[in-house]
Design a protein around this nucleic acid. Structure first.
Lengths: 289, 289
DNA sequence: CCATTTGTCTGACTTAAGTCAGGTAAATGG
DNA sequence: CCATTTACCTGACTTAAGTCAGACAAATGG
């Protein structure tokens, strides 16, 4: 199973990189080095900030400057001083640049369409559906989850976002608890999910009783919802609880958080009577580990 | 819809080529140019014929020789004269080469596993399933279907394979009709499906009555079954029939060809009474276009 | 207001990757 | 058996892609 999955991924990579390689060569077809074509494409797609773009493409600043000079000498791109900072530069396509950009777009579209056209309609639909799934999951795989100090800046950011959302969604609004004492922090397992170093989710576990843990503050940024981040956080928190010797975990929630409740039930949580005096809680759940 | 599908394909390509690029760089991590690493990998995977491999990788013969010299000087690869032809050479890994090959394999496995490990188990299954689907369909998309003279070598090859298979599968064996007269060929629409110029499927349409066409000899090579090639051939034949003014198409089949019958029914064919005297036919179908 | 940092640029270099024009020896077809 | 083809090789070259050290001017922080 394991072996099969790895082989599938590797076969996929091999096949796709051939295919994609072939598509990329179409870029070359317009008689321009690939790096220039790519840069032109990025500028045309609205990246007008030089340093940001260089950072994103991960290129050496000298090399990048030279690529720009080349595009300028072809009169495809103009650079202007940035309004706020005379050292920085902004990038813009000229009219000719726009034309070239459109030509590349047309080529890329044609290549994609060509691929689709060699399939029946049913197959086309299956292909795009499967591609969307692969894309979604590759995106999800880029998100890493790690232990974090609950007093760190990233933890604070996640909690801030979480509280703001609760305040928006609860009928009664929401006011967070005051900060927990040091003692409590020490016993807390706090996880942060990150996409390229940006925090996009969190969740925590704390002891409730000698063999019961409580899961709290599971949050996912809107930008990454539907990627199963909350599930992965829950997985990790539950296995942490198990490692700490808990037999059961509990959690509470508000009636307006329907998706969360659906997830809890799907993960095997059962509704139980009120076990705390949280004024914002309307449902209480428990799962036996 | 169209637009969305194209965008999905392009988004997928972009995302995947980044990911794959990152995987490929891992090859570089062993301090060897990518082309050498790739060549080593191919030789290790059992490609021992120099000219075949060069052909497959599409490399210049001079360049290829140089790559080989480099691998030889690193004592990773040995070349020997081919037994049947003293001009040709065969390629083999040395013991050190095997070690390096195993190291690359390990790295690739680790990269794939690393990707999988950052997903939940459910997500891993979904990812590999979707990848298998994409792979299957990309493979299918490489198959092109084109009009062909029914007397060409490729058509003869397909028909030969088709008849051989019928002979194997029919309880009574199978003996093909003698060649049709020129007149009949002229009215026949013959299609051949090809994968990289190798014929892997065929199918034909001929007029049966003034507004009825007959589909015959739809065959798919075992190596590409399950990729929907037969469906695509049927699509093309039916639309050819429509273009020729047919209102209905008919076909006959033998009882042992269960998959074919299932496909016909799925495509809207209904069983009808015997309409010809084909001694090998046991079922007759018709579809209104 | 001055030392330092930041954002961009130039010049001099390297490496990977590939092309092209021949050259040699074995095989092959008439 | 000889002219031609085939399979591989070498040497001389090119191009894309990138690295690195340092230069310069604007911004910034104390």
């Amino acid at each position: 199973m394991e072996r099969e999955a790895i082989d599938q991924v590797r076969r996929f990579n091999r096949l796709v990189s051939q295919r994609i390689g072939a598509l990329d060569d179409d870029f070359l077809a317009r008689g321009r080095p690939l790096s220039e074509a790519r840069l032109l494409h990025e500028i045309g797609s609205g990246h007008s900030n030089l340093s940001e773009l260089r950072e994103q493409l991960g290129l050496d600043s000298g090399y990048f400057a030279r690529l720009l000079r080349s595009l300028e000498s072809q009169e495809l791109v103009e650079t202007r001083a940035a309004p706020q900072d005379a050292r920085a530069r902004t990038l813009h396509l000229t009219a000719r640049g726009e034309e070239e950009f459109a030509a590349y777009e047309g080529l890329s579209d044609a290549a994609a369409d060509n691929l689709l056209q060699s399939l029946s309609e049913t197959q086309q639909n299956r292909l795009t559906t499967a591609m969307a799934e692969v894309e979604r999951l590759l995106r999800a795989a880029k998100i890493s989850i790690a232990l974090e100090d609950p007093r760190s800046a990233d933890a604070a950011f996640c909690l801030g976002e979480y509280y703001a959302e609760l305040d928006r969604r609860f009928d009664s609004g929401f006011v967070p608890d005051p900060d927990a004492p040091e003692e409590e922090y020490r016993q807390t397992t706090f996880l942060v999910a990150r996409l390229k170093n940006n925090p996009v989710g969190c969740g925590m576990l704390r002891p409730l009783d000698h063999d019961i843990g409580e899961i709290k503050r599971v949050w996912t940024a809107a930008s990454v919802r539907g990627l199963g981040v909350a599930s992965r956080i829950m997985d990790r928190l539950e296995s942490a609880a198990r490692d700490q010797g808990c037999k059961r975990v509990r959690l509470d929630t508000n009636g307006t958080l329907k998706e969360a409740q659906a997830m809890y039930r799907k993960r095997g949580y059962r509704e139980i009577p009120r076990y705390n005096d949280n004024p914002f809680a309307q449902h209480w759940f428990e799962k036996t580990l």
